[in-house]
Design a protein around this nucleic acid. Structure first.
Length: 257
DNA sequence: ATGCCCATTGCAAATGGA
């Protein structure tokens, strides 16, 4: 079972890239972020024709998350992250697909740092951590997939001082990710590839793709019952090199099930 | 200290995001 996560940075703009990638790699489950599309404008029909059922939590202009399932319809568990009824940002969706609970997470970026947006990032991450504890305790097989907007350690970013004042590497953000992991989740890409950077995001500016000046911020955390089923992980870097690419590449894991 | 890139808005250059 192949599960992928991809911050697509506007699903309608990049639909041809998405369809080509689905056809080429045939993931069983896909978590998409930054749809920048309402639910109504999401390309449900085109994905259906490509063999994928979709669960979409859209929003006009910003955010937006979805889960795709090959030859199946995701069974919705929740469309919002609990803990703040006033939060209207489309950043979370959770579904059951082939007996696995899968999320599409789009954690707040949190820039500029410091400020209100960084406070929102930390608060959102706290909510995620509380909810993840419940999921972990449930005993269900769970994959927490998405764009966490956190560079967990210095190994997950090229050597640079350019990001020193950026929300993605701040100690509080890293501590939040660490606290989540400590519940017992496995950072599956890092586990499979302990000695490679495994970047998933390259800023459009300053030729960062060409320089491989990347960050690893898209993660697939697996619960205890799935850890032993992990068979592979990777980043589809070729997708980032294409004309009109998202600034993120798809990240995937392979589970023996 | 700010811009870099990208897309949108609305039709030019400003805005906002990340």
């Amino acid at each position: 079972m192949r599960i992928a996560t991809w911050n697509i940075n506007n699903v309608n703009l990049r639909l041809p890239l998405l369809l080509a990638w689905l056809e080429a790699t045939k993931p069983d489950v896909v978590a998409l972020q930054e749809l920048k599309s309402t639910t109504k404008d999401f390309p449900t029909r085109e994905l259906e024709q490509a063999g994928y059922g979709a669960l979409v939590v859209g929003q006009k202009t910003w955010n937006g998350v979805a889960l795709l399932a090959r030859d199946a319809e995701p069974i919705v568990v929740r469309r919002t992250l609990p803990g703040d009824l006033a939060d209207r940002q489309a950043r979370y969706v959770e579904a059951a697909i082939d007996g696995v609970i899968v999320t599409s997470i789009y954690a707040p970026n949190g820039n500029p740092w410091p400020g209100d947006k960084f406070a929102y990032k930390l608060a959102w991450f706290e909510r995620l951590t509380r909810h993840a504890a419940e999921l972990h305790a449930s005993g269900h097989p769970v994959v927490l997939a998405g764009d966490y907007n956190v560079v967990p350690t210095p190994r997950d970013i090229y050597v640079s001082s350019s990001w020193n004042n950026n929300a993605l590497i701040q100690p509080e953000a890293r501590a939040g990710f660490e606290k989540l992991l400590k519940q017992g989740w496995t950072d599956s890409v890092r586990k499979q590839h302990p000695d490679e950077p495994m970047y998933s995001f390259w800023d459009y500016r300053r030729n960062r793709w060409e320089r491989d000046a990347g960050l690893r911020i898209d993660h697939l955390l697996v619960g205890k019952s799935l850890k032993a089923k992990l068979r592979g992980a990777g980043v589809d870097r070729a997708v980032r090199a294409m004309e009109g690419a998202s600034d993120h590449a798809p990240v995937w894991i392979e589970l023996a099930m």
